[in-house]
């Protein structure tokens, strides 16, 4: 066994030393000097929002020395943020526990206002494609097309009837898509963080219902059924919607039965 451990360690040490192909590195750098291709790119949403990531890591990085306490802190931060999110959603008012959570992490050197974090999306896109790329409108279009494809069906009708489209809706979609993607990966904390961000920026957005449905699912995934139920009930108080089947299929579906039951159909 120990022999084996040694072998494994040897392999890993070797991997840490692994030297890249310097010529290839130089080639890549050469290629990077050309203006970025306008074609299939990173897909935007795939890459985590850098500022959010920085928020998450910055506080932690400073304390890298005390690994154990760090672990505890990180856990507290994650749980705290999630709880704050959970609490927030039961209150309609746009109080800001999530921002508070951000600050608790450790008064950041430069407190990054969470609200601003994702806003520069549109300008950045412009920036990125400015040199030779396609006009920004094209990218935006692509993005919202993607949103339409994978976005919630529940709210599409709502969106259409209001006839309101534009950067806001695109931003809403992006946030919720990111949340959905995180949820599917099992990254419930990340999903909830996205949903909180959506809640802060678009408290009464076009996709607010979709956000709350996702929140129910995320809370369910975290086995926080009570909170999930509270969200679901609050959602239902606004009247039944196309989201009903999804709620019914969630972990709190059973509990919702007495509240509203569509006639004839039940899962």
């Amino acid at each position: 066994m120990s022999q084996e451990q040694e072998d494994i360690q040897r392999l890993i040490r070797g991997a840490r030393r692994a030297a890249p192909d310097e010529q290839a590195l130089a080639r890549v750098w050469q290629r990077l000097q050309a203006p970025p291709p306008a074609g299939p790119d990173d897909g935007g949403a795939e890459v985590p929002d850098p500022a959010a990531l920085a928020n998450a890591t910055q506080a932690l990085a400073g304390k890298a020395a005390a690994a154990t306490s760090l672990k505890a802190i990180a856990a507290v931060v994650v749980v705290g943020a999630a709880l704050a999110g959970g609490r927030w959603l039961t209150r309609p008012g746009p109080s800001a526990p999530a921002e508070a959570a951000v600050e608790q992490r450790e008064a950041p050197r430069e407190p990054a206002p969470a609200v601003e974090v994702a806003i520069p999306e549109a300008p950045t896109t412009v920036e990125a494609s400015a040199p030779t790329g396609p006009p920004p409108a094209k990218q935006a279009g692509r993005r919202s097309a993607g949103g339409a494809a994978s976005g919630g069906t529940a709210n599409s009708s709502e969106a259409e009837t209001s006839g309101e489209t534009g950067p806001d809706l695109a931003a809403e979609r992006r946030l919720l898509e990111a949340a959905q993607a995180a949820l599917q990966r099992g990254a419930t904390a990340a999903a909830l963080a996205r949903l909180d961000e959506h809640g802060r920026r678009f408290a009464h957005g076009l996709l607010a219902d979709e956000r709350e449905v996702l929140r129910v699912l995320a809370l369910c995934a975290e086995h926080r059924a009570d909170e999930a139920e509270a969200v679901a009930q609050a959602l239902l108080r606004g009247g039944p919607g196309l989201f009903l089947p999804r709620l019914r299929g969630s972990c709190v579906g059973e509990r919702l039965v007495p509240v509203q039951r569509p006639k004839g159909k039940r899962e």
Binding site: L32, P36, D41, P48, P50, Q58, A61
Partner: peptide
């Protein structure tokens, strides 16, 4: 690696917290 740095080129302007750049 090329794609990675294209992303970096594009998104770097948003990234102000250099402390965590490696993580990013």
């Amino acid at each position: 690696l090329h794609e990675l740095f294209i992303v970096v080129q594009r998104r770097l302007p948003e990234f102000e917290h250099r402390a965590a750049i490696r993580t990013w």
